[in-house]
């Protein structure tokens, strides 16, 4: 299994505040990688760096090297919009646009130049099926997406991200705003999705990391302390700090 993202000596500052320190990681393709760690340790910051969402925040400075399929994502040749098409994102709080379910899903494809109605219909259906929400939405595609439940909205957002056919899906605590039933549906979905996509997921929920992920990265105070197969991290952590964290001794 090859690595789709490789990060070398990456540091990040918000103004004077250093949020990430010398992070090195190789993220394997078509697998699920979980980021864990206490609040404020830089998980979201690191995740957002991978598709350059941090570009939107003024005063961010990044050093080091981040490669996606071998290409430096900060190089001049890389079009950031294409990068985000390849590396999609699902946010902590479901954020559907205030438009119809159909238009939400079609937003990405339309952005990237697809206007053919038949083609769009196909993409929308496939994305909704892949996100396991087709049955609930097929009769109300023209209805406003804001009328759906939180769990449905989050799966809609996943479908919206899938509709641009990304390679990687970044998910920042995708279930933290959801009830247990919606959460387990999304967990099942994520596991299915790794057939086709590489998934990187931030979670505060240790059980969730164990249930769904293949690899786990533990962050602490802006450092990547340990990165390994999930089974190994949780059964025989090499670092004392990792052990303390997963056994609940702090955090």
């Amino acid at each position: 299994m090859s690595n789709i993202i490789s990060v070398k000596d990456m540091s990040l500052w918000y103004g004077d505040h250093q949020a990430l320190k010398n992070v090195n990681i190789e993220i394997p393709e078509k697998s699920i990688t979980a980021f864990i760690g206490p609040s404020g340790c830089g998980k979201s910051t690191f995740l957002k760096t991978l598709n350059r969402m941090n570009d939107l925040i003024p005063g961010v400075k990044i050093t080091g090297d981040i490669r996606y399929e071998g290409t430096d994502i900060f190089s001049k040749e890389v079009d950031v919009n294409n990068l985000r098409k390849e590396i999609g994102m699902v946010f902590q709080k479901p954020n559907p646009f205030p438009m119809s379910i159909y238009d939400n899903i079609a937003y990405g494809p339309r952005t990237h130049g697809i206007t053919n109605k038949v083609e769009l219909d196909e993409i929308v259906e496939r994305a909704l099926r892949d996100a396991a929400i087709w049955d609930e939405t097929k009769d109300r595609l023209k209805k406003n997406a804001l009328g759906m439940s939180g769990g449905q909205q989050q799966r809609l957002c996943i479908a919206r991200a899938l509709a641009v056919q990304p390679n990687i899906l970044l998910m920042d605590e995708p279930t933290s705003a959801l009830d247990p039933i919606s959460t387990s549906r999304i967990e099942e979905l994520v596991v299915e999705l790794k057939e086709k996509y590489t998934i990187v997921m931030v979670t505060h929920n240790m059980q969730q990391a164990v249930r769904v992920s293949d690899y786990t990265a533990f962050f602490l105070l802006g450092e990547l302390v340990e990165f390994d197969k999930t089974d190994d991290i949780f059964s025989q952590p090499r670092d004392k700090r990792t052990e303390d964290y997963i056994t609940g001794r702090f955090g």
Partner: peptide
């Protein structure tokens, strides 16, 4: 909401779009 803008940027939309 800022989250609308983030959502759209996250799908690869340019500023004007």
């Amino acid at each position: 909401p800022q989250s609308y803008r983030e959502g759209a940027f996250g799908l690869g939309a340019g500023k004007w779009r």
